[in-house]
Design a protein around this nucleic acid. Structure first.
Lengths: 233, 233
DNA sequence: CGGTATCCCCCGCGATACTG
DNA sequence: CAGTATCGCGGGGGATACCG
């Protein structure tokens, strides 16, 4: 299979770049503000380093991405060009459509690390106590090596740890990947899950009570699903 | 490579269907009003029958397309569901983006049959004389078997013929695929090409003079290109 | 940190021929 | 008209190891 479609239709020409495997997800990360190679990988964890590099080069040649030397010898940054920034409405539309109409979440989609990474990016730290806050998340249904995560908020920003950062935990949240994923997607109401105990919180009461406030969900969460849950197999 | 991306992000889930090879072009055809298998193929001529069938089935399973029995035993029609119709803004955005930013047209994109098929779909017959009108197009740069096309407008509609339909030709247009393609895309101004003689018309003068009126261009033609023509190789 | 370099498998897809 | 059936290859991309 060659690359092209044998047409000069603008949709066909755009598709040559945009519909390559992983490309839309890389663009989503860049639009979300990532610029470092490994930050992009954290948002697209299943892509291999070599393929990510190849895709970034394709995007560079297509005039969508620009690669710049960052501060430091081994620091590089990837930025969207004007053409790349204009892809934003496309990505938004696809996200909205996906929220309404894409297939249900299957077990193999439930990557706990990815979920925590996305949560940490959108924490509303203004709704959290001042100073350092350490949140531990436990996924009771995750494999051993992906069961515990720590999110640490300091004045310097929010970070994810895969091992205990050492500090005292201020809030412990126990749930399943499935529940938190569907809450994040806006499919399950967060307060209902708290009441039902499928999300169990332990720790400082102020932090606990404000949980639905500082836990910002997916930007597409407010969009209501239209696909009937009982669709065909 | 599995199909999924290991994420429950709505963009990732939508991508599983939408970024499959040819899929966007099939959707473009359905949104343009095609519903018959072979009509879709005329708009996506380089796809094989088996692959088109496979893609349509995938789209059916994804709830985007619905297959119905038409009038007659061997007549089937493909329609967009509500979910499918909601893809329209995505396709429009991609088309607009492609018009502005996609790569230049290369020789292998210049399919003359595809061009004529798209022109015939958007003829403004109200700007043409009443009764039957036969237009012959000659592409001086096309291979022998794709050099001549006839567009026949009658009360019953507009049709494309690959062989002379027998009727007298009312207007003969001689040009190159490149010129007409770039005119259709809105990259070259039609009147300039007529003046320069790179589009040469012969025949009824009323039909000739109204040529820029009844020849409707791509819906994206009014959108001005932003990519610098002298971009990197 | 930000990549390279290989190896190799698998399957997507193009080509062609045939059918109810 | 609207597909089915079959075959074979090319190369996309996953996995893994290594590097400046």
């Amino acid at each position: 299979m060659q690359h092209g479609f044998g047409q000069f239709c603008p949709i066909a020409l755009a598709s040559e770049v945009l519909t390559q495997r992983w490309t839309l997800l890389i663009l989503r990360e860049l639009l979300a503000g990532s610029s470092r190679f490994n930050d992009i990988r954290r948002g697209v964890p299943r892509i291999s380093a070599s393929l990510l590099k190849a895709r970034l080069e394709t995007l560079e040649h297509a005039g969508i991405v620009e690669r710049r030397q960052g501060r430091g010898r081994d620091v590089h940054e990837y930025f969207l060009t004007a053409a790349g920034k204009e892809l934003k409405p496309i990505l938004s539309n696809i996200g909205e459509w996906g929220q309404r109409w894409a297939r249900e979440i299957e077990p193999e989609d439930l990557d706990p690390g990815w979920l925590v990474w996305n949560i940490h990016r959108r924490l509303d730290t203004a709704e959290m106590p001042p100073g350092r806050t350490v949140i531990q998340i436990e996924f009771s249904d995750a494999p051993r090596n992906a069961r515990y995560f720590w999110i640490v908020n300091t004045d310097g920003g929010v970070e994810v740890c895969l091992k205990s950062p050492g500090y005292t935990v201020d809030l412990r949240a126990r749930t399943t990947v499935r529940v938190l994923a569907e809450v994040w997607r806006g499919i399950r109401p967060i307060r209902r899950e708290l009441r039902a105990g499928t999300i169990h919180l332990e720790g400082h009461s102020a932090l606990r009570r404000a949980f639905p406030k500082w836990l910002l969900l997916s930007t597409y969460a407010p969009i209501r699903r239209k696909r009937s849950s009982r669709s065909e197999v």
